[in-house]
């Protein structure tokens, strides 16, 4: 995965957030405060602007810049969490090209960063419920010797399944936790946006 592909990935995320803004906001409206779509769109619009004309030395620079920009522009829970994810991933990838295994390891560092910050574990009905299975699928595929595009496809599918499965969960972290049992029956917005992030990766690496 090179710098160009990384840029395409991030651009694809921006496009996905544009397209899914209302959907994410409506999901957040049901069990949160109705801002997740707007937050993510604002953040990735800022990221697109920040990367425009930016000259990265390596793959990681693109992602660190993405994360830093998210932190400065999103706010809410999603800003620091996604920002930390991209920064943590980016910090692992110093070269102009990232090998699949490096990428898998970097992703794990990203997840660790998110969990360290947000203290959510799988089952808490958060983005972690999409992120963790996505990374597991990605890592397994790479270990299996699969192409990075295939790995990304599997990650996206796993993230989507993970997001879907949050419907049945009772939230223990984030705003939805305030609803107690009433949070059951609704899909977590952050898990849903995470699925978009990995679907965008699959698109970027298979186009």
């Amino acid at each position: 995965v090179d710098i160009h592909q990384t840029r395409i990935w991030v651009r694809a995320i921006t496009a996905a957030m544009d397209q899914n803004k209302d959907r994410l906001t409506q999901l957040d409206s049901a069990i949160g405060d109705a801002d997740h779509g707007v937050n993510m769109q604002r953040g990735f619009t800022a990221v697109a602007a920040a990367l425009d004309g930016y000259e990265p030395a390596g793959v990681g620079d693109v992602l660190v810049k993405t994360g830093t920009t998210l932190i400065s522009s999103v706010g809410g829970a999603a800003g620091p969490l996604y920002g930390t994810f991209f920064r943590a991933v980016g910090k692992q990838l110093t070269g102009p090209v990232a090998e699949p295994a490096q990428l898998a390891a970097a992703f794990e560092a990203g997840l660790a960063g998110v969990q360290k910050l947000g203290a959510a574990v799988p089952g808490d009905k958060t983005m972690v419920d999409a992120l963790a299975p996505a990374l597991a699928a990605f890592g397994a595929a790479i270990e299996d010797g699969q192409d990075v595009g295939v790995a990304a496809e599997r990650a996206a599918t796993a993230a989507e399944a993970g997001a879907q499965e949050t419907i049945a969960l009772q939230a223990r972290k984030g705003r939805a936790s305030y609803l107690g049992p009433r949070s059951i029956g609704h899909q977590d917005p952050g898990a849903t946006s995470t699925a978009l992030v990995f679907r965008a990766l699959a698109e970027a690496l298979t186009s």
Binding site: D35, V38, N39, I71, S72, S73, G75, G76, A77, P80
Partner: peptide, 11 residues
């Protein structure tokens, strides 16, 4: 002040 119902950013 952050956006409506959105906490401010660290900056």
């Amino acid at each position: 002040p952050g956006e409506v119902f959105t906490s401010p950013v660290p900056d």
